[in-house]
Design a protein around this nucleic acid. Structure first.
Lengths: 344, 344
DNA sequence: CTGAAAGCGCTTACAG
DNA sequence: CTGAAAGCGCTTACAG
């Protein structure tokens, strides 16, 4: 095992003394700043060797104060979203992380708790260089971010304010799913929304559903339900088969997974008796029984795009015109959707 | 929307000047340091009001350098574990986050990438006050952490070195699951391990399986397989039913979910033809078809315990004797386990 | 009861 | 080609 670092770590002064040069020169060399080109190679090597030998590493604390940069990017989200998010946020976080890591930046989680003063303080205290806002962008977050002049970008959230944001085309994705079901011959298609917190995707997905249903002449079967999965299954199980929907769309794949199970419990077969389609493309959509037909959000790309927008703002001198980036969703047909039952 | 902060943010000097006191007094009051008791209430109020009015917030950058504390705790993990981990790590992270948040600390993710010098540098550059090590503790991480004298604790990882660590009782949990299956009347119980990276839980779970099988007189049926789920299912589907295992234990719930699906695809019914048990207690164990009998790790408590151990080290003056905390696992019987088929 | 001063460990114009 | 000096914005013994 390597020897312990001495109790008091070496500082830049220790390296400078050891080499008989100034702190300036050490800093310049170790940071590869432009000025280092003018330092003779011999000196450079000597400094690097000394740093190595002493086990010197520039203190991030000192550097942060002097350089006025922390290389940390806040990821701001509202509970009850858990710290470790599932579903779409897995991909979004992976995309964010990838871009930040490439650029030597780190993520700082900022949950928007009850105590507004607490999180507002964190946004104001200069500990991050920029931020990504997940899912929801509303007061008092909006005005706090503007006030502290922090570069930021929304991910999977929209806004009427002129701010950078990266969205999924939820209208297009939903329309594609409904069209797929209609093409299979379904007419009685129900949208099982459940109780959802307000999110822009809800409106878009439901709107596309209504529009396609109308365009295909199934307007009379439009039905957007806020029931829970068990309520829904219990209710349709009690209905005569010919009145039941022949296809159900759920708002996200957690609900779809639950729905498949409850239908199985109630003896309704998917897709023979009922087709099920949903949104989301993460585990376990491929491993449900049957595998789930679902609309994938381009989550990693969303995360990457948003992270890049923040990095650009940080790195460019002048303000960048706010951009609204909308990325396509794509339907993957698996085995939970099929033609409706014959007597349907 | 609130007014913007001026381009140059107010500093402690601005507040001091406005109140006609020194920086010292402002710092003391705003931090509620012990010395603040001696400042007259009138002055305190005046300072607080001025800070409020100026929109002053102590700069984290300045504070970090002066106080020698960052209030950040590294969460160190080895890829290929993704940034946003699923399964057990959801709970572990939630537990860590809970304790850290209560104490005003933040998480900093430190993935152990290829570039050792890179992450070792991050551990050395004074940007965190302590660390939690997930899952795996080996060289060169071990010596790096020792060398920089950073307080740390392992979570869901063990070590022969004298370090703080929090573990789940994988032996006990596995034994309970095997006993449950034996009690139902199973003899031909197979452990489907799959290809797993080395982790202490593998040995413990397998060991318990062997021990219980032996104790119950089923030693001749002991079988630990490294096949993939599809390989396993294809193989047993080709065997005569009376030679197949009547119960399968998978190493974790991702595999179990996949297994349930493949068995369904192959026409084998769970639990009628085959029982399935596993480890892990996160989504979708309750929503699989059928709901999965599984052994839950006390993940949140593991995260909390480990975070507390790190906080204690940070806050206590002298070194604390390394502790090895082992927390119980508990079996939840759902509907994927039942008595073996009659002719079994 | 309060403040001057040193110090935390760097970076970066600027001067030579 | 190199360094002295100022500065980043705080905290904290210490002196009065």
């Amino acid at each position: 095992m390597d020897k312990l670092l001495p109790m008091s770590r070496p500082t830049i002064m220790d390296v400078a003394r050891k080499c008989g040069v100034s702190k300036t020169t050490v800093s310049v060399i170790l940071n590869d700043s432009p000025a280092s080109a003018r330092v003779p190679v011999e000196t450079r090597d000597r400094i690097r060797a000394a740093a190595e030998e002493l086990g010197y590493r520039p203190s991030w604390r000192g550097r942060v104060l002097a350089s006025q940069k922390t290389h940390m990017i806040g990821v701001i989200y509202a509970p009850p979203m858990p710290l470790i998010v599932r579903g779409n946020y897995e991909g979004i976080m992976a995309g964010i992380h990838q871009v930040l890591q490439e650029q030597g930046y780190h993520i700082l989680f900022v949950p928007l708790g009850e105590d507004t003063a607490h999180w507002a303080g964190i946004l104001q205290d200069q500990r991050m260089d920029g931020a990504l806002v997940l899912s929801r962008f509303q007061e008092p977050l909006a005005s706090t971010l503007m006030r502290v002049r922090m570069p930021f970008c929304l991910v999977n959230a929209d806004s009427d304010l002129p701010v950078h944001r990266v969205l999924a085309d939820d209208y297009g994705g939903s329309a594609e799913l409904v069209r797929h079901l209609c093409d299979l011959g379904h007419e009685r298609i129900t949208f099982l929304l459940g109780k959802q917190p307000g999110h822009y995707s809800i409106t878009r997905r439901v709107e596309a559903y209504r529009d396609v249903m109308r365009a295909r002449g199934h307007e009379r079967f439009v039905s957007v339900l806020e029931e829970t999965v068990p309520q829904f299954v219990d209710r349709i199980a009690a209905e005569p088969a010919r009145e039941r929907p022949t296809a159900v769309i759920t708002y996200q794949h957690f609900m779809a997974t639950h729905l498949l199970q409850k239908l199985w419990d109630a003896g309704m077969r998917v897709p023979d008796d009922l087709s099920v389609g949903s949104f989301g493309n993460t585990f376990p959509v491929e491993h449900t029984i049957p595998p789930l037909s679902s609309v994938a959000l381009p989550t990693e790309e969303m995360g990457r795009a948003a992270a890049r927008l923040v990095m650009q703002q940080i790195q460019s001198a002048e303000a960048i015109e706010p951009r609204r980036v909308v990325l396509q969703e794509t339907l993957t047909v698996r085995r939970s959707t099929a033609a409706p039952p014959a007597e349907g």
